[in-house]
Nucleic acid binder design. Structure first.
Length: 539
RNA sequence: GGUGGGUUCGUAUAACGGCUAGUACUCAAGAUUUUCAUUCUUGCAAUAGGGGUUCGAUUCCCCUACCCACUACCA
């Protein structure tokens, strides 16, 4: 989530200013290579509607760059391997960096030694002359090591007692004294790869990056990056920086982790992810979130438009986005609000689109959905006027759309539809015991059957075309019950129990207009056979 | 430990140094409805603490507390 939000803000900023959004894969740590991670990232961004102008696609191919733009391929740093060494050595020649020959063991021994004295070892001006490097050793001694050994590195020579003055688009002016910084490794002879710091600065320069919008964890490295641009003499084209705050866990302390999702029951990944150990982390896509809702929710986590608007399409976000309105403090993620966003987007969707998403679910429950009444008849259906055949479980797309229209206000996800509306496709398999105990008793049952008879007698014959609409039946039914002096709530709930299996659900008029008289009669028969007529039968 | 960043209702956030600190989510109550849900109305609920500057501080400054990040031949 955090990564997607960072990408989103980058994308919005780029698009807001007519720029290009570039995806570069920073895979300079061969130890931490994760198979499938790159594909996952591109797919996740794609799902969110974040499409790069330059970079690689999910298949790993280079994205076509418009002819009026500069291409900057390749976009994987592992494929750019050859270009970094000379930049690192340029820094050595300029006296801004040096060769270091300390082994990993020597370094950790040094750290342990300092730790024993309750001090922290920092490889810097204070200590570098006591280490093994091209500054502390005579040239005659270290020069041969360059050839004979393959475990040396190039380190940045952090200047002594200098205040680096930096500007951040979100945080404003920041100053840091270089004495608190260390001589970072820039390039490793062992795998001939740069570290993040060198690769990032070189590539940002080469790729003509104008703004760097990244996570807060990079803020402590910013002075190094400033100094690197300065050392290369690139300060005139140095990008502007913006450091985003982190996403925090919904409860307690600390930043959001994938464990929180498992613990509190919400996804922290955009898409489902299976790691090398086979552990599966749920994804927003698989949990039924619309990408628009996910993006909208993420956008509002740490940014606001300055007014009360909350619902934004990607286009709206591009128009409204500005770094000035990005919040400095960490944003605590709220799963309830995420669900609320999805509910809002669900309601905005057309019945046709939602029906399209619901149909596979219906099919998985054994229903057959056909495109038109004619196709239904071809498939052997005896359709009701509304387009349903309950006996053969065949329904027209139009029928599904009518159902969706009525239930979408009651759902948060498409996945909720079946639970809410299964009785509009198949007679209830069972009846809520609690509701039956409450309503299926005494004369209410008798009255419910009379009301059902009234409905069956209302409008034209079953086979004579459209029976009635909700509007046509609702008034007369209510009048009938009321003028008979019957208890409206009890009669209606008896009917609802028969039709929906419980006392919660759509209005009776809605249900009968949808399922039709024949199905109404069938369900009344069925409940009589199952629950009886409500008379007390036990002694 | 050191360095840097941060702190407004439970959460996300709004508020040129100036009205009773606003809005959304959650929660609660009420209204509507044939039930449930929806919808509508109302309510609960915050400037971390202490100093200072000022006629006036959520806003600017300092201190304290707490939170976060960094402190790798990781990004």
């Amino acid at each position: 989530m955090g990564g997607v939000r960072t990408a989103l803000y980058n994308y919005l900023y780029a698009k807001r200013h007519g720029g290009d959004f570039i995806i570069r894969i920073e895979d300079t740590d061969s130890q931490r290579f994760v198979p499938g991670a790159e594909k996952y990232i591109i797919e996740a961004l794609n799902w969110c509607g974040i499409i790069p102008d330059e970079g690689v696609d999910a298949e790993g191919n280079v994205v076509e760059t418009p002819s009026d733009r500069h291409p900057h391929a390749p976009y994987r740093q592992s494929q750019r391997k050859g270009i970094y060494r000379r930049y690192a050595e340029e820094l050595v020649e300029k006296g801004c960096a040096y060769y270091a020959f300390d082994t990993a063991e020597e370094l950790s021994a040094k750290r342990a030694e300092m730790e024993a004295e309750k001090k922290t070892f920092i490889y810097s001006h204070a200590t570098r002359m006591s280490m093994r490097n091209s500054l502390s050793m005579p040239e005659s001694e270290w020069k041969p090591l360059l050839e004979s050994r393959t475990d040396w590195t190039i380190r940045f020579k952090m200047p002594e007692d200098r205040v680096v003055k930096m500007d951040d688009l979100i945080r404003g002016h920041v100053e840091v004294n270089t004495d608190t910084l260390d001589d970072k490794v820039l390039w490793k002879r062992a795998d001939e790869l740069p570290t993040y710091h060198l690769a990032n600065i070189v590539d940002d320069h080469l790729m003509e990056i104008t703004e760097v919008i990244r996570g807060e964890e990079w803020l402590p490295s910013l002075p190094l990056h400033y100094l690197l641009y300065e050392a290369f003499g690139w300060q005139d084209t140095m990008p502007r920086f913006a450091h985003l705050s982190l996403l925090l866990k919904p409860d307690g302390k600390g930043k959001l982790s994938k464990r929180d999702g498992d613990r509190l029951g919400f996804p922290v990944f955009p898409l489902r992810w299976t790691n090398a150990e086979g552990e599966v982390s749920r994804g927003y896509r698989e949990d039924g979130y619309f990408p628009e809702a996910f993006v909208n929710m993420l956008a509002m986590l740490g940014w606001n438009p300055g007014d009360d608007r909350e619902l934004f399409s990607m286009e709206d976000l591009i128009q409204a986005f500005s770094l000035e309105r990005v919040i400095k403090s960490g944003a605590r993620f709220n799963p309830d609000k995420a669900r609320w966003f999805n509910r809002e987007y669900l309601r905005m969707k057309s019945d046709a689109e939602l029906a399209g998403l619901f149909i596979p679910v219906l099919e998985s429950h054994g229903m057959q959905v056909v495109d038109c009444p004619k196709c239904a008849v071809t498939a052997g259906a005896e359709l009701t006027p509304q387009g349903a055949d309950f006996r053969n479980r065949i329904f027209t797309r139009g029928y599904v759309e009518k159902v969706v229209h009525l239930i979408k206000e009651r759902a948060t996800f498409v996945a909720d539809f079946w639970d809410i509306a299964s009785y509009l496709f198949a007679a209830p398999a069972s009846f809520s015991e609690k509701d039956a105990a409450k309503f299926w008793k005494e004369e209410n049952v008798t009255l419910a059957f009379k009301a059902a008879e009234f409905i069956c007698g209302f409008g034209p014959e079953i086979s004579a075309g459209p029976e009635f609409t909700k509007e046509q039946i609702e008034g007369p039914l209510e009048d009938y019950i009321r003028t008979s002096g019957w208890p409206m709530g009890k009669v209606m709930n008896c009917l609802r129990l028969a039709l929906a299996g419980a006392s919660s659900g759509l209005g009776i008029a809605d249900i009968v207009a949808l399922i039709g008289k024949r199905e109404l009669a069938a369900r009344m028969d069925h409940i009589r056979n199952t629950l009886g007529t409500g008379e007390k039968t036990n002694g």
